[in-house]
Structure formats: C-alpha cells, structure tokens
Amino acid sequence: MENPFIYGEVVTGKNLCGREDETKELLRDIRNSQKVLLFSPRRYGKTSLLKDIFINLNKKEFFTIYVDLYPALNESDFIKLLAKAFSSGITAPLYKTLNVLKDTFKHLASRLSFTINKEGNIEFDISLEKHDISPVLVDLLEGINSYITKNGKKGVIVFDEFQQVNYFEKDKVEKELRSQMQSQRNICYIFSGSKKHLLMDMFANPNRPFYKSTKHFQLDKLKSKDIFRFIKTKFQDTDIEIKDDLINKVIDISECHPFYFQYICHEMWEMSFLNGKVADEYLERSVDRIMERETSSYDNIWSLLSLKQKKTLIALSKILPQEKIFSNNFITKYNIGPVSTLQRVLNGLVKKELIDKVNNNYEILDIIFKKWIQRIY
C-alpha cells in the first residue's frame, strides 16, 4: 500500500489539499485574460496549484504553456525554454509540429536546429547572438499570440520561478514581455515565484518595466478545516484510525504549512499502517525524525549566520502572538536592538529566505528549523 501523504513533489487532483477558493479565483483570471503575479514562500504549493488548474482546463478552449525558468541563466535560455514549452502544447504529428514552428516564427526559424530524443520529443538548439535577443523574443511572443488566435482559443502562459529573470544581464526580457502582453487580450500571463523581495522589486518598483502591470496574488497557508478533512480522509481511506484531537495537534504543530503537515503525516502513516492506528506519541516521534534528518542542513545554515542574525532568529522562534518585534520590550528582552540595526538584520534574513514578513510581523519560514532553534536555545 502506498503512503497517501506526498511531500516534496508536485501533486494534483485528490492529492492536493484545499485551494478551492484560490482555484476559482485563478480560473476567473484565466478566463478574463488577466495578468497575474502569484507568489508565496517556497513549498506552499504554487506549482501544484497551477499544474492542477492546467490539467482541468478545457484544451479545446485554452492553449496552455508552462515554462519552468529555474534552469534559465540568460535570455537565450529563456527563449529556448519558452519555445520548447510552446512546441510541447501542439497536439500534432512531429512533422506537422516542425512545420508549425517554421511557419509561425520567421526570425526564430532560421536560428533553430532540431533533434529528436529517445522519447520522441523535440530538443531545440538555438544559435543566438546578443543583438538577436530582442527581435527573436518579439518574434516568439508575437508568433505564439498569432497561433493561439488563429486556432480560435485563449492562451495561458505560466512562467514559474520568474525571479530568475532578475539575474539576467539585461532587462530585455522584462521590456519585451511587458510590451507584448499589454496588447495581447486573449492570453493570461501568470508569473509565479517564491523570492518575494526580488519579485516585489520587479513588479512594484516604478523604475522596472513590470511596474503595476499585474494583479498581485499571494498564496497563503492552508485553511485548518481543509487540512483536517484531508488528513481524516487519507487515514480513513487506508483503514488507519486517527483521533480528531491528534489531527488538530498536527495542524497546530505544522502551523498549516502545506509541505510540513504532509511530511509529518507521511511519517505518522509509516509508523501506523501495520497496526492500523495512529498512537499519540507518533506525532512527536515524527517531528523528531524529520528534525534528525535536517540537522546537518540546519547546522550548516547556522554556521553561516552572523551573531546578530542568530540572536534575531532565536527571538523570532520564541515570539508570542501578542508581541511585536519592534516594541521596546521585545528588543530589550532579547537584546536585538537598536531598531535600525534590527531592520537591516531582518532584511538580510528575508533575502536568505529564512523569514518572511507576515501581517506586520516576521515569521521563520521553516517550522522544523524553528523547533530546532527552540530546542537548542
């Protein structure tokens, strides 16, 4: 029997917990060809949500393009990944797909060479000089729009890990994308990413091309009622008994984090599937097991932090709901002032993706890392 709690990979359908409201809102945005910036901390399930929506879109009505930009190091990589994602959406024999690419892209076609891999898929090799980037990118974006329109469909283009564009040498991609998408009323663009500080600089900075060009959609933690129902159902479906109060403890200890509630339940299920019952002590044992696996990683992270960063993380690991990090009492209690220094330290920890600003306060993103700090200090 397979463990029904899946973590660390993309999940869809019955393996995706909650997100009904988010799905409905994004579907409305897609139908309205809205331009959307979707962001959240890592491991909140952005990719799973988007892939689940793609699976359920009517392919007769929508042409979907999903581009994972994580491997992109420059503009040439961006063009290659977008062209490959477009070609994979063409449901036609291989020779027709090649003809579509040649007919659709005038500038790009002369720079493309094709090989067919063992799986029978097209592999691109694009020869580009620096002066080719802008005209070829315009050709690609205009060609995609033309193809979608010609086929009487609406388009959905997702750029996942879009913050990678921020590392490109020039801002040609940002400028050309902004220019093209302004005039494309039949395509929904979704820019998804996890590095909030980089994305906010790209989309909220008046000096950047994407300033005020998209709707901002922040993906939050899961609702506790959705997690409760999901956990209850998964254990019941595999004939394992779990008490309601233990489910609530999982919700509390995981802080409704999409990744960590699945990870904890995965471990609890492994301990329970032979005897058909989740014992109370399995929760703490599961957290201990996860922490033990991550200890070397946490040790490495901790060794690279400054003393002020360590003191600030210790303070954040112990902060109470009613406490405010910039209050005099809190700063004095943990000796993490003055305020100007504390703000610089917090900004540095945000850039390291160790904390995030939530409702005018700051939280440690990795809840197991937080518990690791609490146990040591």
Rank of each mutant, 00 (worst) to 15 (best):
Q184N: 07
N300S: 15
E294I: 08
M271P: 01
L38W: 03
A204T: 09
N99R: 15
K333R: 11
K352C: 09
T23K: 12
N117W: 06
Q343P: 00
N32F: 06
T23I: 03
S192A: 11
R285P: 00
E123R: 08
E119H: 08
K223T: 03
V250L: 01
K172P: 00
L27V: 15
Y167I: 11
Q309E: 15
I368H: 11
D237F: 07
T47D: 00
I314C: 04
Q343K: 14
I157F: 00
L307E: 06
I30E: 04
D171K: 10
K351R: 14
A109H: 05
T149Y: 15
D245R: 13
I355S: 06
G45Y: 02
E9H: 13
V156W: 03
Y211C: 06
F62Q: 00
K318G: 00
Q343I: 12
L27I: 06
K318I: 01
I264A: 02
H216K: 06
I126S: 03
F63K: 05
L349W: 02
L26R: 03
D125Q: 07
D68L: 12
I90W: 03
V100A: 03
I122C: 12
K14F: 06
S40Q: 03
G276Y: 12
N3G: 05
N56Q: 11
D245Y: 13
H197D: 10
D103C: 07
S272H: 01
S317Y: 00
L26T: 04
I355Y: 02
S146Y: 11
E292R: 10
M202K: 14
G8T: 09
Q163K: 09
A85F: 02
N361K: 11
S303E: 15
S76D: 13
E61V: 10
E353M: 05
F228M: 03
K318C: 09
G18L: 07
G13Q: 02
R293D: 15
S134R: 14
D139F: 06
N15M: 05
D299C: 07
M268K: 02
L112H: 09
Y263G: 01
R285E: 12
E294A: 05
L141V: 12
N207K: 15
N359V: 09
C188F: 05
S87G: 13
N347G: 13
F159Q: 01
F326R: 08
S306V: 10
N99Q: 13
I264G: 11
L128V: 08
T295M: 15
K311Q: 14
K310F: 04
G45R: 04
L94V: 08
H107K: 10
L246F: 01
V173F: 03
G89A: 11
F62R: 05
Q163D: 07
G337I: 02
R28T: 10
P209W: 02
V36L: 06
Y95E: 11
L198W: 00
Y66F: 14
Y189C: 01
S48W: 09
E241V: 13
M202Q: 07
G120H: 13
I251G: 03
E255L: 12
S76N: 10
F369L: 05
L304S: 14
D245K: 04
Q309G: 08
